[in-house]
Design a protein around this nucleic acid. Structure first.
Length: 901
RNA sequence: GGGAGCUUAGCUCAGUUGGUUCAGAGCAUCGCCCUUACAAGGCGGGGGUCGUUGGUUCGAGUCCAACAGUUCCCACCA
């Protein structure tokens, strides 16, 4: 049957994936084998595959497939994340398009919509992973909001609350005015902003006691309206919330303001001047306006100095009633208007350009508003403590290791984790508020944390008595808030095997701790660190042993891929175009651990080309006819010996590279072994002459080598390797490469590798002579060797260079092109056309180089301090170099002499 | 403001304890080839004073210092 000269992945990939699924090869159950476990970083349930996923999951699949081929019980657990804030935002948007507001339909109805949305869009990404070839144990597919995972989250919350690690309190939190929820510190992204610094006039209150005294260094402002202080601010729209002005007590230029009262511009509220070291004397005028409700530092000052706190913003960051003016305006509009009004009122001294950092919501990309609110927090001190140890002592290894520092720094400076979100999509906080009326009519509230409502009721009854509980004035209602998404993700390695609810179950005991975690460095704090905390807290054991941080996928200009830039290719389209194997290879070739990868379609093209190369090697071998009577030619015999050694050499390197998570190096090694060593050298050496059959020994060896190459390559390129596996030999049912075992490392014949390297150099030289002199390959030539040499590979030289005869002589032949390999002289006799002058010139060049080299070596050896100081082996090496160089020079000189005759 | 990393061929990167197995790889490029597996290919070639400047050393891409450029992380200077 004719095989196409182009490999077509479209015809191959789907077929094999189905076959693997049918055979249930991806599924794992505990047995006596060593487990190898990976849990997927769960993508957003309603998301679609992007390049980051492609890379990340390719790596996971490589590791999982390799483990499977090493006889381990490989288990890769897939799943998705409910992505609380992101998904809720999408559902809210969708409802808005239908004119529905979430608050109008209520929690239950909203959740119905959210589940519909989840079911409709959910799991697309997992299907896409199948196209990529991912060998996940799909039977284990989980969701952070499925039954077990949800119950695990609730159990963990209750448990941590009972341990005293979770508390509820009023704190300054990061408020997202678009999503209308609190966020954790990690969800705030600071961006540089070109903004303005506004200098506002705060006039002093005139009164009898208020006397301005000039002291040394004072800078007093005064105009026709009186004395005034100048405050520099980037946020003039918050003046309605000012309840003090603060100076540094050690600031000479503002001494005159001590104990005074000033008037907030436009607002006309009188506020005191307070003093605190916190104020930076050098910044602006050294006067700080204090808005305790809207700035973290001001809040701290407010607490310290007992200031009133005026919340001038509504939850959506419009101006509130409490502000008394500009009510209902957006903060942006308000700023514009207030600047105009200040100017008109003569209260704006000047405006300067200013660069500062503004916190934005990671999800909704709107500026964060610091807001005082009641939230739930997880205490981090203890958890940080237990999570630091395993990373510092090497129980968990980071690749690359530079992330250890980052990790440590974060844990050592950690703050409590705000875990409540004012969202509905997610795990509702298992806290109930029991409200009742005391005998004297006072209303009271008790917070009850319990696994479910029934439990909560039981506790309420226990604590407050049945009659109080049943009283018509009593209410038990659950906290409205949901938990941060990461509060479920951090349990992932535990909860996937039901280790929170049932820590003694056999599966959990078998699969946990998992082996490798492959993730992006930008979630090292969000996720990695917290999983380690949870693992240590619940199992007193690490959740995984190695963490491989991938780089961020960028476009070839180094820009982050994003929807708005439109520079992110659709991974599925790439697979359609280049095949999954091609794309996988493209991703892996330039993705050393931790380095950003600059993605370029050309890399996938290289992957596709490689597939094609392999495909054509198959075509060649398939075209061979075995001649059972044929004896094995010498060249083929040597080729088999050599390739066997070479294969084992690369096998050792590959194993080493993968053990060190240097996957791109490993793949490159296999690529070169296949393309250069196998295709360009080996196959050319063993090819039978036109029209002849190949002998049995060589054929079998070749098939074996081909198989071994495919085994080595399979984790990286699963589809084409399975296809080739089945094409090169008759396979019994179930003899599939995916479950075959990796080749075992055999002894490497170093001697033959050295000999062959020498041979390659000879062949390259002959080819160069051919190329230089324009001698077509079909025209046979002769090769003359001066003196003696190892003749083992002469047959190979003859075959690959179309040399009719390799002969050995004592004297250099006249009229021949010469070259030197090592210190052996070779000649290609060519009738009539030798340009003696050119040959002399070439040799002189070589001589110059060799002499220069010799000189440097001699200088080194003449240096007593080197001979005495350097290790003996190094000195010995130099002596050898000297001897070699001298031999080479002698040879060149001799040749020159004979040419000049 | 603090901290970490990076800077080697046109591009993307290796270079693990300092010593021609150290100046490499892949891609790109150039020349010649439709040689019956492969033009998504074959064969051959060119290309870097290892960011700069000092220092340590017999010897530095490799160690140290400073500087420049660049990336990232953290941080309550309005």
């Amino acid at each position: 049957m004719e095989i196409s000269s182009k490999y077509s992945p479209q015809e191959v990939e789907g077929k094999w994936y189905e076959h693997w699924m049918e055979k249930n090869y991806f599924h794992s159950t505990p047995d006596e084998r060593e487990p190898y476990t990976i849990v997927i970083p769960p993508p957003n349930v309603t998301g679609v595959l992007h390049m980051g996923h492609m890379m990340n999951n390719t790596i996971q699949d490589i590791l999982i497939r390799r483990a499977r081929m090493q006889g381990k019980n490989a288990c890769w657990v897939p799943g998705t994340d409910h992505a609380s804030i992101a998904t809720e935002a999408k559902v809210v948007n969708k409802l808005a398009q239908q004119g529905i507001k979430k608050t109008d339909i209520g929690r239950e109805e909203f959740l119905k919509h959210a589940w519909d949305w989840t079911h409709e869009h959910g799991g697309i990404i997992l299907k896409q992973l199948r196209r990529l070839g991912c060998s996940c144990d799909w039977e284990r597919t989980s969701f952070t909001m499925d039954d077990i995972r949800s119950k695990s989250v609730i159990r963990a919350f209750v448990d941590l609350y009972n341990k005293g690690l979770i508390y509820r309190g009023v704190r300054m939190v990061n408020w997202d005015p678009k999503a209308l929820t609190a966020l954790s510190d990690e969800e705030v992204i600071f961006k540089d902003e070109h903004s303005k610094l506004f200098y506002l006039k705060y006039y002093l209150v005139e009164s009898g006691e208020c006397k301005v005294e000039s002291e040394e260094g004072s800078i007093i402002h005064q105009d026709e309206k009186g004395y005034y202080a100048v405050v520099a601010t980037t946020r003039p729209e918050t003046i309605m919330g000012d309840t003090a002005m603060c100076i540094n007590p050690n600031d000479p230029k503002n001494q005159w303001l001590r104990g005074k009262k000033v008037v907030v511009p436009l607002v006309n509220r009188v506020i005191p001047v307070i003093e605190d070291d916190y104020v930076d004397i050098e910044f602006g005028t050294g006067c700080l306006k204090v808005t305790p409700a809207h700035d973290v530092n001001d809040y701290m000052l407010g607490q310290k100095h007992n200031l009133e706190s005026i919340n001038i913003f509504n939850d959506n960051a419009t101006i509130s009633e409490a502000a008394g003016m500009y009510v209902g305006m957006s903060r942006e509009d308000c700023r514009k208007q207030i600047v105009i009004d200040l100017k008109e009122a003569g209260l704006l001294e000047k405006i300067e350009d200013y660069n500062n950092k503004v916190g934005y919501s990671e999800r909704t990309n709107v500026p964060i508003e610091p807001k005082l609110s009641m939230q739930w927090f997880l205490k981090m001190e203890h958890l940080a403590d237990i999570a630091l140890k395993p990373v510092l002592n090497g129980d968990i290894k980071f690749y690359p290791s530079k992330y250890v520092n980052l990790y440590r720094h974060w844990l050592e400076n950690i703050k409590d984790w705000c875990i409540s979100r004012q969202l509905w999509w997610g795990h509702q906080i298992p806290a109930w508020y029991f409200e009742w009326k005391t005998e004297n009519g006072e209303r009271k509230v008790d917070v009850i944390v319990a696994l479910n409502k029934e439990e909560a009721e039981k506790i309420a009854i226990e604590k407050h008595g049945l009659s109080v509980f049943r009283s018509p004035f009593s209410v038990l209602r659950q906290d409205d808030d949901a938990l941060d998404t990461w509060f479920s993700s951090w349990l992932w390695p535990l909860s996937l095997f039901n280790g929170i609810l049932d820590p003694d179950n056999a599966e959990f005991k078998y699969y946990y701790p998992t082996n490798d975690l492959i993730t992006a460095p930008d979630i090292i704090f969000f996720w990695v660190a917290r999983m380690i905390m949870a693992g240590e807290e619940y199992q007193d054991e690490v959740p995984f042993k190695n963490v491989y941080f991938t780089g961020i996928v960028r476009d070839k200009l180094g820009r982050k891929m994003s929807k708005s830039l439109g520079n992110s290719p659709d991974p599925i389209e790439l697979i359609d175009k280049f095949g999954a194997d091609g794309v996988r290879m493209g991703m892996m070739l330039s993705a050393p651990a931790g380095n950003d990868i600059l993605f370029d379609e050309a890399l996938c093209e290289q992957g596709r080309n490689f597939c094609n190369k392999i495909w054509n090697a198959l075509r060649l071998v398939k075209g061979w006819n075995v001649d059972e009577n044929a004896a094995q030619p010498e060249a083929a015999k040597m080729a088999v010996k050599w390739f066997d050694a070479r294969f084992n050499q690369v096998l050792a390197e590959t194993n080493d590279n993968i053990d060190k998570y240097r996957l791109s190096d490993a793949l490159m090694g296999i690529y070169k072994l296949t393309w250069d060593d196998f295709c360009s050298w080996y196959l050319e050496m063993v090819k039978a002459p036109q029209g002849q059959g190949i002998d049995r020994v060589t054929y079998d060896a070749t098939i074996k080598f081909f198989e071994n190459l495919m085994l080595l390559l399979h984790p990286f390129m699963p589809f084409i390797t399975e296809e080739i596996w089945h094409a090169i030999a008759d396979r019994k049912e179930g003899d599939d490469i995916i479950i075959a075992q990796q080749p075992k490392l055999q002894a490497i014949d170093e001697q033959i590798l050295k000999q062959f390297e020498f041979t390659q150099e000879v062949i390259n030289n002959v080819r160069k002579v051919r190329s230089d002199k324009n001698i077509a390959f079909r025209d046979a030539i002769q090769l003359v060797v001066k003196g003696t040499a190892n003749k083992d590979f002469d047959c190979v030289i003859a075959k690959l260079c179309n040399v009719s005869e390799v002969s050995y002589v004592a004297e250099a032949p006249a009229g021949a092109f010469g070259f030197i390999v090592g210190s052996t002289e070779f000649f290609v006799p060519l009738t009539g056309s030798v340009d003696v002058e050119a040959e002399i010139k070439k040799l002189e060049e070589e001589l110059r180089y060799a002499q220069g080299f010799l000189k440097s070596v001699e200088a080194k050896l003449a240096n007593e301090r080197f001979v005495n100081g350097a290790p003996a082996a190094v000195v010995e090496k130099e002596r050898k170099k000297k001897a070699d160089a001298e031999a080479k020079i002698a040879v060149i000189e001799q040749q020159l002499a004979s040419l000049r005759k």
